[in-house]
Amino acid sequence: MSDVARLGASGGAGGRRTRPLLRTLVGDVLRRHRLEQGRTLAEVARDACVSMPYLSEVERGRKEASSEVLAAVCDALRIDLADLLAEVGRDLLDDRAPVIHLRMVGAHGAIAPPGHRPAQRPGGVVLLAA
């Protein structure tokens, strides 16, 4: 199984961009919380009533955990499922393509420096970079 999904035809090797799989990000967040709490895999697996090898596979992104297993592991880690999903969402946002800030281009094609807000005047053009 792969830890990344190949998406679209933009960038990356072979013209395709790679993104981490959801199961990988979920596992990363679960592991991060467990380690922050100073707990062992065995302790959390016991408290969640799942096997230690299975929880290890979930943490490494090798297994797709069911919603029931995720709820049990979250309970064992004393975190809300909603907080787990929000943190996964933030990690997904961090992995997005870099943001390109648009700058106003003057009538003669001069690009305003970042942070500079030129006076609004007719004929200004906004360039989009792809």
Rank of each mutant, 00 (worst) to 15 (best):
56 S>P: 09
10 S>Y: 11
56 S>W: 11
21 L>V: 12
54 Y>S: 10
82 A>C: 06
93 L>C: 07
18 T>K: 05
10 S>R: 10
121 R>N: 09
25 L>M: 14
2 S>P: 15
48 A>H: 07
10 S>H: 10
55 L>R: 04
80 D>W: 06
99 V>T: 11
19 R>H: 02
104 M>G: 02
89 G>R: 07
13 A>R: 15
127 L>T: 14
49 C>Q: 08
115 G>Q: 00
8 G>P: 06
94 D>N: 10
79 I>R: 11
37 Q>C: 09
119 A>R: 15
67 S>T: 13
122 P>M: 14
126 V>W: 14
42 A>C: 02
100 I>S: 12
16 R>N: 03
85 L>E: 01
47 D>F: 00
45 A>Y: 02
101 H>Y: 01
94 D>C: 09
19 R>T: 06
77 L>M: 04
31 R>Y: 02
87 E>L: 05
79 I>E: 08
125 V>T: 14
88 V>E: 01
114 P>G: 09
118 P>G: 10
83 D>G: 06
74 C>K: 05
56 S>L: 08
63 K>Q: 10
35 L>W: 05
43 E>Y: 03
123 G>V: 07
73 V>K: 06
4 V>C: 07
66 S>N: 05
97 A>N: 10
15 G>I: 08
82 A>L: 06
33 H>T: 07
122 P>T: 11
5 A>P: 06
120 Q>Y: 12
104 M>N: 01
104 M>S: 07
116 H>M: 15
70 L>C: 00
93 L>W: 07
9 A>R: 11
72 A>N: 08
30 L>W: 01
40 T>L: 02
56 S>C: 14
75 D>F: 01
82 A>K: 00
116 H>I: 13
75 D>W: 00
1 M>C: 13
116 H>P: 00
89 G>F: 00
